[in-house]
Design a protein around this nucleic acid. Structure first.
Lengths: 154, 154
DNA sequence: TGACAACTATTGTCTAGGCAATTATCGTTG
DNA sequence: CAACGATAATTGCCTAGACAATAGTTGTCA
């Protein structure tokens, strides 16, 4: 029934698992270091890692509502309102009342926002390249496959 | 000079990188889902994922100061003070003034804290086993190697 | 049309971490 | 011993996300 030859059933066990060196800790550490490195990289632009996520999403085209944006990046609506406030104060994002549906508020990057976008990408690429130094393309592809398989298991 | 045959120099490039599907997003998503799953698993015990980290560290033996604990899990001292407050209120952790050095405060699990420990381990093992369903032992080993290599690059 | 349910954005409240300043203690050095 | 710098824990202040409640808007259906 199972065509996969190398699939082992048990994996971790409560008897042998060591949380100090375990998988979760490792993953958290990597994520945290990447985020910190990105924050340092973006500090000159006065943009945080959390704001980066919003900006790159908007860069791929305007968004028809903040709630759509929330779902896309799994973010709380209240937090999103205030996040947009900050980005608007910085002049990177613009709120536009939607004429069709006055509940909605369309969002788009300002020219300033569009202008910083390339630097955002450069920053994240630089961080990734640094932390993935020594990886072959095959290894990265497999790494990504591992991560996607975990998500699919969720 | 480079004995590794499969090591490619460039990796990601700003031209081709797509932040929406990129490596960082993937990693963040996996970490977040694991943490949320652990929170759900621990909710009946009224323990959060952040508290779990402290408890498992203390379970491996008393700690001679909170600042030592901070370094171990890269946590702010102020946040740690309040975290210990919460855990002490719950009766899981005990503060003990160090007789040798009265600046320090030794920390240890209470009997109640020791009692819940096995359930913490069961919870995290259950979460990991669920998300790593279908992985072979070799794949997990390689996955962990990838993560460790990233940390080493930091 | 009018009542009502569903949806959108916002606000208030709570919790929590990061940073800076403070207090108490220790070790060292004159 | 006294002064000084270093260290440990704590506290206050700020920022930020999660959750719940609210206000305004839309579509539906009797």
């Amino acid at each position: 029934m199972d065509a996969h030859p190398a699939v082992a059933p048990p994996l971790y066990s409560a008897k042998t698992f060591d949380p100090k060196t375990g998988f979760g800790r490792l993953l958290s550490q990597v994520k945290m270091e990447l985020m910190e490195a990105l924050d340092r990289e973006l500090a000159p632009l006065d943009i945080t890692g959390a704001q980066y996520v919003i900006l790159v999403t908007l860069a791929e085209g305007p968004v028809d509502s903040t709630s759509g944006l929330c779902k896309g990046v799994s973010y709380d609506p209240g937090a999103m309102t205030r996040m947009i406030d900050r980005l608007e104060r910085k002049g990177l994002v613009r709120r536009i009342r939607c004429p069709d549906d006055r509940r909605k508020i369309n969002l788009e990057l300002t020219p300033e926002g569009k202008a910083v976008y390339p630097r955002l990408i450069e920053s994240v690429v630089a961080v990734l390249n640094r932390y993935l130094r020594g990886f072959s393309r095959d290894e990265i592809a497999q790494f990504e496959t591992f991560l996607k398989r975990m998500l699919a298991n969720g």
